[in-house]
């Protein structure tokens, strides 16, 4: 098979065109991330935001600014604390309510407006004697109450709690990802449930001993995402979640995070989702 000059030229040209095509495909296709790949790679089944180290934390975790929804119950204990403080400066909440510059209101009309405000009544009743003494300076033009600094007073007291919370958030994240990584093989071995089961989230409470073993079977804290379509999968998903954590039970986790003042992985809530 001998080549004449025309064939050498034609084959060389063809070679160049192929090289150019491959180069162009490599450049352009490598630059654009292919659309179908990310869904194919998604195998995570544990939600990290809901993981919380709830165990015997003496002081409830102060909410970080990002999670404003959860901390309903931590807020309650902190509110009563500032309450005793206000009585001394509180004397003149009244001028804020009735801005008319009536210089010397009788105690009776002043007592009437505060009644609709339920919470501050006990402190104000204690401050009433002072109140009557200090009222003369009240008729100034400003509508700011004397207690406008009240909120500022407890802001610094909350700041240290926040820094502690961020530390425990990092620890939580590392513990969370370590647990996720270690139970993933067990979760992948579970049989697939029907469609709709993947919307169910099961929050399990795990009690672990220091060796990473479950000290008692996981208990269900709550389930979410159950609707009419997938309610028949609720129990299978719960069983599967418990089975996954039992199968991969000796979890290897950092020992120094077993129990900290903010909680630890000795008592931890994890959210499970069907892979």
């Amino acid at each position: 098979m001998r080549l004449d000059r025309g064939e050498v030229g034609g084959t060389g040209l063809a070679l160049l065109l192929h090289a150019g095509l491959i180069a162009a495909l490599t450049m352009s296709l490598a630059g654009v991330p292919p659309k179908p790949e990310p869904p194919a790679m998604e195998v995570e089944f544990v939600d990290s935001p809901e993981v919380a180290l709830t165990a015997g934390a003496p002081t409830p975790l102060a909410p970080s600014p990002a999670q404003a929804t959860a901390p309903a119950e931590p807020a309650e204990p902190t509110v009563p604390q500032p309450a005793p403080a206000p009585p001394p400066p509180i004397p003149s909440p009244a001028p804020r309510i009735e801005p008319t510059p009536a210089p010397r209101p009788t105690p009776a009309p002043r007592a009437a407006p505060p009644q609709p405000r339920p919470t501050p009544t006990p402190p104000r009743s204690t401050a009433r004697p002072l109140d009557s003494l200090r009222l003369p300076p009240a008729p100034r033009a400003s509508r700011l109450g004397d207690d406008f600094l009240q909120g500022i007073g407890d802001a610094p007291s909350r700041a240290p709690a926040q820094s502690a919370a961020t530390f425990s958030a990092e620890a939580k994240a590392s513990v969370d990802s370590a647990i996720k990584r270690q139970i993933q093989p067990c979760a992948n071995r579970q049989p697939a449930l029907g469609s709709g089961a993947e919307r169910i989230r099961v929050v399990l409470n795990l009690r672990l001993d220091r060796s990473g073993r479950l000290s008692r079977p996981p208990t269900v804290v709550r389930t979410s995402g159950v609707d009419d379509d997938n309610d028949r999968y609720e129990q299978p998903v719960i069983d599967q979640a418990i089975a996954v954590y039992r199968a991969c039970s000796p979890l290897r986790l950092p020992a120094e995070l077993y129990s900290t003042p903010q909680g630890g992985w000795g008592n931890i809530n994890m959210t499970y989702r069907v892979p």
């Binding site: 025309g6 064939e7 030229g9 034609g10 084959t11 060389g12 040209l13 063809a14 070679l15 065109l17």
Partner: peptide, 16 residues
């Protein structure tokens, strides 16, 4: 790929 190069070489040569 070699077959493709060879094919296109033949196509170009013969068409011309």
């Amino acid at each position: 790929l070699l077959a493709s190069v060879w094919t296109w070489g033949i196509i170009i040569t013969h068409a011309l």
